[in-house]
Computed example of a mutant assay.
Amino acid sequence: MFEIIPPDARNARNGIELKETQNMPKTKINDPSIYQKIPKILRSKKVLLALAIVIIFAFIGTRGGADMGKIKTAQVEQKNIASEIVTAGKISSQSESTIHPAVNGKVVWVPVKEGDFVKKGQAIASLDKEKYEIALRQTEQDVVALDAELEKLYDGRRNKTSIESYDEKIERTALEAAKNKAYDEWLEAKRNLKDTVITSPFAGTVIEVNVHPGEEIFYTTAIAKIADIENLNFTAELDDTDVGQIKEGQKTIVTLDAFPDEEILSQVESVSFVSNVTSSGSDVFEVKFNLEQEEDYRIGMNGESRIIIQEKEDVLAVSVEAIFDENFVHVKTNGEFVKREVEKGIESDSEVEIVSGLSKDETVVIAGLEEIGKKTHFFKILSIFVK
Rank of each mutant, 00 (worst) to 15 (best):
M1N: 01
F2A: 05
R10Q: 15
T21E: 02
P25D: 10
P25I: 12
K26T: 14
K26R: 14
T27K: 13
I34P: 06
I34S: 15
Y35R: 09
Q36C: 09
L42S: 08
R43M: 10
K46L: 11
V47E: 04
L49P: 01
I55S: 11
I55D: 10
G64V: 02
A66S: 02
A66M: 01
D67N: 12
G69Q: 06
K70L: 06
A74M: 10
A74S: 13
Q75W: 01
K79D: 12
S83Q: 15
I85Q: 03
T87I: 08
E96Y: 04
P101T: 03
A102H: 13
K106W: 06
V107Y: 07
V107M: 07
W109C: 01
K113L: 07
G115M: 02
F117I: 05
V118R: 03
V118I: 06
K119V: 02
A123C: 14
E130H: 14
T139I: 00
A148L: 08
E149Y: 07
L150H: 04
L150Y: 12
Y154I: 07
D155L: 13
G156N: 11
E168S: 02
R172Y: 00
L175E: 08
D184M: 11
E185C: 04
R191A: 12
T196M: 06
T196A: 05
I198G: 07
I198F: 08
I198W: 04
T199I: 15
G204H: 04
I207T: 10
E208N: 05
N210G: 06
V211E: 02
T220P: 04
A222F: 03
I223N: 02
I226R: 09
I226E: 05
A227S: 15
I229C: 06
N231H: 12
L232W: 00
A236G: 13
A236K: 01
T241Y: 13
D242V: 00
V243D: 00
I246D: 02
G249V: 03
T255W: 04
T255G: 05
D257L: 03
P260T: 01
E262G: 02
L265H: 06
E269W: 08
S275G: 13
G281E: 02
D283R: 11
F285A: 08
E294T: 11
E294I: 08
D296L: 13
R298S: 14
R298L: 09
G303V: 06
S305T: 10
I308Y: 05
I308W: 07
K312S: 14
E321C: 09
D325Y: 13
N327P: 03
R340P: 15
D361W: 03
V364G: 00
G368Q: 03
K374S: 01
F378Q: 12
I384W: 11
